[in-house]
Design a protein around this nucleic acid. Structure first.
Lengths: 242, 242
DNA sequence: ATTATATTTCATTGAATGTTGAAATTCGTA
DNA sequence: TACGAATTTCAACATTCAATGAAATATAAT
C-alpha cells in the first residue's frame, strides 16, 4: 500500500475545476471537454453495472467511450473517484424526487399519516419508473447500485449519498406504524431495499425459475407485486414472539 | 478474449482426480494435499466474500492460505473453478437441510399445507442459524453468495446450484397460497431472497442508519423480524389492481 | 530399496492493470 | 494574429495479474 500523495497536477478535478464561463462558443455554451466527460461517465456506468467495479478496466471504459485512456485520469483523477461521480450523478436526482413524492403523499393525506402503501410507493417509484420508461442509462445505474448495496467494500461510498434519503422514509414509516417498534422498522427498511434490489438487478434469474412466465425487464409487473409485498411485510412487523 | 484451450495437464482437477484410496497413512486417511486444498478454499471464501471475485487475486488468496501460488492452479485449475468449488461446498449443505426442513414442516402440518411462516422458516433457518451460531466460515460464504446473487456476471454459476432449491419452495408456497397467482409467487420468492441477502451481507449499513440500535451481526434479531415480514408480504401478494 | 505417483517449490511467461509526463492540438480571448 | 489556458494525444511507467513449465520433494505401493 503506497501512500498516494499527488493527485494529477493538471486536471480540473485536481485542485478544483475553476473553469471560466466559456459561453458563446458556437456550441451553445458546452465546453469541449464536457462531451468527453459525459461519454466517460456513461461508459463507466454501463461497464460497472455489467461487470462490477473491479471487473472492468479503465482501458475498456475509455474504449467504450471512444476516447483516449489518459482522459479518464484528466477528468476524474482516479478510478475510485470516477465511480463516485457515476453514482452521485443519478443518486441526487432520485433522492430529490423521492423527497418530493413523500411530501406530496403527506399533503394528500392531510392531517393523518400517509398510508404505508403511499410511503413505499413514494420510495420505489422515482427510480423504478425510470426503468419502466426505459430512460437512457438508468438500467446500468440500477444494476450498479444494487451491487454496491451488497458489497462491504463500497458501503462507505454509497452511504454518504444514500443514507439521508433513508432517514426521511424511516421516519415516515415510524409515524405510519406506531405499533411497530423502531428496531423492527430499521430492519424493515433494509428488507425494502433488498426486495427492490432484486427487481433492479437484471440477472435473468426469474426467467429461469418461472420458465419465462416472469421477465426481468417487466419492471411494471414487478412493481405491482413489490408494493403490496413490502407494505404487507412492514405491517406484519413487530409480531415477533418476545 | 483468448480461447483458453488446455487445462493444466498435471492437476487432479484436470482430467478428473482419480486418486487412489490412500488410506492407512498415519494421518487418518487424510492425504497430504487435502489440507492445502482446504486452506485454499477457506482463504478464497474469506477473500471473495470481503472483496468480491474480481477484487482479490490468487496471489492474495494463496498468501492468506499460507501456500505457494502455483498450488491454486494445481488443485483448482482456474480462478473461476475455485469460485465454483467454494460455492458448491456449502451450497450443497444448505440445500439438503432446507429440503429436510421443508419435509419436516409438511409432516408436522399433516394433511394440510404448512403455514407460510413454516415454509419461510424452513428456507431461512438452515443458513441463518449457522450465522447465529457463528459456525466457522459461514459468514464469508453468506457475504459471497449475496454478491453473486446480484451480479449478472455470475448468476449462471449460482443457478446450477441454487435453482433446484428454489423450485421446491416456490411449489410449497403455491400450495400454501392458492389465491395468489403463480406470477406473483415467483416475484415473492425473489423478494424473499432479496430480504434475506440484506441480513446476510454484513455491510454495517443498519448500524449507521439506526445509530447502533440494530447490529449487523445480530442475525437472531434480524431473523425474528424477517420471518413475519416475508410471510406477511407473501400473504399480501396478488392484491394488486388489475 | 525401488519404483510410480502425488504434491510442492521456484522461476517465469505474456498480457493487463492504474497512473503519469510531456508534447501536441484546439479553443477562447485579447 | 498572437497569447494563454484547456483539452487531447502518445508513449511509457512500475505493478500486478492468471497461468504454466520444469525441477525438486514427499508419499505410497511393490
Amino acid at each position: 500500500m503506497k501512500a498516494k500523495t499527488a493527485l494529477a497536477r493538471k486536471t480540473p478535478s485536481g485542485g478544483l475545476p475553476k473553469r471560466k464561463p466559456a459561453s458563446r462558443n458556437g456550441r451553445g455554451g458546452v465546453r469541449r471537454g464536457d462531451t468527453t466527460r459525459l461519454s466517460i461517465l456513461d461508459a463507466a456506468e454501463r461497464c460497472f453495472g455489467e461487470a462490477g467495479f473491479d471487473g472492468v478496466s479503465l482501458r475498456t471504459i475509455t474504449e467504450v467511450a471512444g476516447v483516449d485512456l489518459a482522459l479518464a485520469n484528466y477528468h476524474f483523477g482516479t478510478k475510485d473517484n470516477l465511480l463516485r461521480e457515476v453514482i452521485a450523478r443519478r443518486a441526487r436526482i432520485v433522492h430529490d424526487e423521492r423527497i418530493r413524492a413523500l411530501e406530496e403523499a403527506r399533503r394528500a393525506a392531510g392531517a393523518r399519516s400517509p398510508s404505508v402503501e403511499a410511503i413505499v410507493t413514494a420510495f420505489l417509484e422515482p427510480l423504478l419508473r425510470r426503468l419502466i420508461n426505459g430512460e437512457q442509462g438508468w438500467q446500468p445505474y440500477a444494476n450498479l447500485v444494487s451491487q454496491l448495496d451488497i458489497s462491504p467494500k463500497f458501503t462507505g461510498l454509497t452511504g454518504d449519498v444514500l443514507d439521508p434519503t433513508a432517514l426521511h422514509f424511516i421516519n415516515a414509516l415510524r409515524l405510519a406504524l406506531p405499533k411497530v417498534p423502531p428496531r423492527a422498522i430499521y430492519w424493515g427498511y433494509m428488507f425494502l431495499l433488498g426486495s427492490m434490489v432484486q427487481v433492479m438487478s437484471a440477472t435473468g434469474r426469474i426467467e429461469r425459475l418461472s420458465h419465462g412466465l416472469c421477465k426481468s425487464e417487466d419492471i411494471q409487473s414487478a412493481l405491482r407485486e413489490l408494493v403490496p409485498f413490502v407494505s404487507g411485510g412492514l405491517k406484519a412487523l413487530g409480531a415477533a414472539p418476545r
